[in-house]
């Protein structure tokens, strides 16, 4: 927004003040996320910049907290770092195990949410869908209802149906996380379908394709970017979720957020910041992917960015 040339001096001053204010707000948004990155390389067990760090002295920085992530919970962390040591990490390190659990839960929850969610979004975006508004409201509600209420309800419900005795590990958490991810899939996929040209489907049918072929060869490639964005949203939701895990997870069902939660509540150490840094990098990667997908989708559908 360029300043018009009829602006008075007062308006010019205000314009630059306004830009400074905006810069400060952007700083407020981004600084707290970036500040953990240098701090996670702290050589000392403090949460602030030591004088050595400020002087950019290499001695002030170290990878000890990242190392701690690997060794925490190991049987013999001081053994020589050969294959047996790495096997020990893979088997016993608490953070590595938490990461494994998080990925297992996240992947299955994402598959459930994306599969059901995409199918439902296809139905919801048809003009002849009955009770569209009410059903949409129900399907989006897991995002709106406070997580504590959902977790409390699941806590009662799962203890009533005794889901922990069914013998399927993580089942309760996976189902809950899938439910929490569904609204994101619905929102992103229906948004993609809004710009979808239905005459393409009719053209495919006209050329002799059966409904299944039409779906997989015509519809699916076009809405795929939206589906992948939704899946990523669902995965992040599960990967970041802690309250349901705390309420309904068994003791050995540790996930990364739960491990972080315990770490923050009990003895907060810069190892938490090392995890946080890794998660920030993961979220930067995800954001980039989603943004690229969005542009690809717009290009595919011939919608020029507004």
């Amino acid at each position: 927004m360029a300043l018009p040339n009829y602006a008075s001096p007062l308006e010019r001053i205000w314009h630059y003040t306004y830009l400074v204010i905006c810069a400060l707000i952007f700083l407020f948004l981004i600084a707290p996320i970036l500040v953990v990155i240098p701090l996670s390389f702290n050589a000392e067990p403090y949460f602030t910049f030591t004088p050595k760090m400020l002087a950019l002295d290499p001695e002030g920085y170290s990878l000890r907290w990242y190392d701690k992530l690997l060794t925490f919970g190991m049987i013999d962390p001081d053994a020589p770092r050969d294959l047996a040591w790495w096997a020990d990490v893979w088997e016993n390190s608490k953070w590595v195990n938490a990461a494994k659990n998080s990925f297992i839960i996240g992947i299955f929850a994402t598959i459930l949410a994306t599969g059901f969610g995409t199918l439902a979004a296809l139905g919801l975006s048809r003009p002849e869908m009955p009770f569209r508004r009410a059903i949409m409201a129900i399907l989006i509600s897991p995002m709106i209802v406070p997580i504590i209420i959902t977790a409390t309800g699941l806590f009662f419900f799962y203890s009533k149906i005794q889901i922990s005795h069914w013998g399927i590990p993580y089942l309760g958490i996976i189902l809950a996380h899938a439910t929490l991810g569904i609204p994101f899939v619905i929102i992103t996929v229906t948004a993609t379908l809004v710009g979808f040209d239905h005459s393409l489907n009719r053209a495919a049918a006209n050329l002799g394709a059966d409904p299944r072929t039409t779906f997989f060869r015509v519809t699916m490639p076009l809405i795929l970017p939206g589906v992948i964005s939704g899946a990523l949203f669902a995965f992040v939701t599960s990967f970041d979720e802690v309250v349901v895990v705390l309420f309904v997870g068994a003791l050995d069902e540790q996930t990364i957020p739960r491990q972080m939660w315990n770490g923050i509540r009990e003895q907060i150490s810069p190892a938490i910041l090392a995890v946080a840094t890794i998660l920030v990098i993961v979220s930067i990667a995800l954001l980039t992917t989603v943004e690229l997908l969005r542009r690809r989708s717009e290009r595919l559908r011939g919608v020029s960015p507004r």
Partner: peptide, 12 residues
Amino acid sequence: LPFWTSLLVRTT
């Protein structure tokens, strides 16, 4: 970016 970053990370 804050929107995509873990809630626990931002709180930490």
